[in-house]
Design a binder for these strands. Sequence first.
DNA 1: CGATTGGTTGAGCCCATTCAACGAATGTGG
DNA 2: CCACATTCGTTGAATGGGCTCAACCAATCG
Lengths: 260, 260
Amino acid sequence: MVHIYFRIGVEYKETIQIHQITMLAPTQIPQSICGSCTIRQLCLPTGLTDEEINILDQHVIHRKSFKKNEVIFPSGEPFHSLYMISTGQLKTTVLHNDGRAQVTGFYLGGDVLGLDAISTQHHPSEAVALCSGALCQIPFAAFKLVSHQIPNIQQQFISRLSNEIIHDPDVMILLGSMTADERLATFLLNLSKRLELRQHSPTELTLYMTRDDMGSYLGLKLETVSRALSRFHDQGLLFVKGRHIQILDAIGLHSLIPHR
Amino acid sequence: MVHIYFRIGVEYKETIQIHQITMLAPTQIPQSICGSCTIRQLCLPTGLTDEEINILDQHVIHRKSFKKNEVIFPSGEPFHSLYMISTGQLKTTVLHNDGRAQVTGFYLGGDVLGLDAISTQHHPSEAVALCSGALCQIPFAAFKLVSHQIPNIQQQFISRLSNEIIHDPDVMILLGSMTADERLATFLLNLSKRLELRQHSPTELTLYMTRDDMGSYLGLKLETVSRALSRFHDQGLLFVKGRHIQILDAIGLHSLIPHR
DNA sequence: CGATTGGTTGAGCCCATTCAACGAATGTGG
DNA sequence: CCACATTCGTTGAATGGGCTCAACCAATCG
């Protein structure tokens, strides 16, 4: 595993993992790039056999790097590919006619983007990089071709789509019936859990998005987000310094959220 | 077409259409039940050829009737079938540990229930009938079998799943950044549009759900819903009498909703 | 270096909630 | 058939949480 440093903000240095092809013993069969990726359990190949991954792998455009604020696809763009994040973070936003924007999601390594564009053949939202990183791309036509060869891929894909729908109720509860503190606590604990799944620290995290982004996503104004963070800091639940957050009392944060 | 009357509340009688097999001329090939259903354009067979529908049709358990307040599937139930509403209306609710419930959706004829249960193999929500009606059922194992025979069905199914995900942003905007009046106007116009698609009147409609159900779905308290309805009534936008609603000024309602 | 973007904090206001009372409708059992 | 309990809906008054408006500071960038 290789670690590199890159610069975010003025003082925070973050280590990210380059998902590199592992060195192979001479007796081993050469592995595909996807097959050796450290986040393949979270990515599109979830639940596939090594053989199936190898077939999928051949159609994937691997590790295209992107910079902060780069637009991966704009809103309304014709749909042609699914995107899988390798490293870094993205946000998706829906643009209103009047110019206002609503953040609809934050995406980490292994997350798949573009699933909402299949039916209309156009991306309803735009995807923007929150920091530098890299992503993989698979043309949907190629994916369809592969899925005809291996029905299992299609079943797994349907399961993944179903899993996206399942989060709907969570969002509705969050936005429909939670206070600002409850929303923020839910958001931070969820982010922490997702980072942990990706082998990052669950307690020390960098919020690559702005307060405004968080507020838009959580249905709050940026001032409210800022105030809630300060409150958590004063209460000893968090250590907050700009975008660098340390979760000091996860249990305390959890106890803020009703009925779970 | 046959019309029957059934009783909802004390004074409102509603005509519903029984989707009956149309009479066939002697020269015609016998049609499947799905193939002759008036709402097949909205239901699972969307985008399939007559031949494909016939294959699907053979695995469908047709038109099981249900009564008001009947639970179609409880929360946590193992997933085995998809359900398609033939006539009537349902709601889905997610139950919290503390006993509170959140309404996550209202479903009309042609809508498919159970899509969110595929990945976990358990229904995350419970489905309850808001009035009497009938639904069709297809075991998912049978559906998978059929989809291996006809890949087109699977593509259509993936497209349908994608279409469910696309509504996420709409819900987020609704719950995240709209006032009570805006939410209610959006809800009523959306319901009106969906009813129109199903050959019902878009202006005269019956709200089979309670004010509490609407409030839960819209992230409002039932009193707020009631007040907003009364306000719309006083402003001449609606005629409200209990659960019977008449939309008097759709354009006025529309103008309440920001930026669209 | 000034300009711009992002973040914090304060004061006052407003909309939705809470608490409460009451009326209407429905269903049940005597 | 009526008395009663229950559910559902409406309306009023008071409260409060998040928003608006605003000032200020820090960091970044050209």
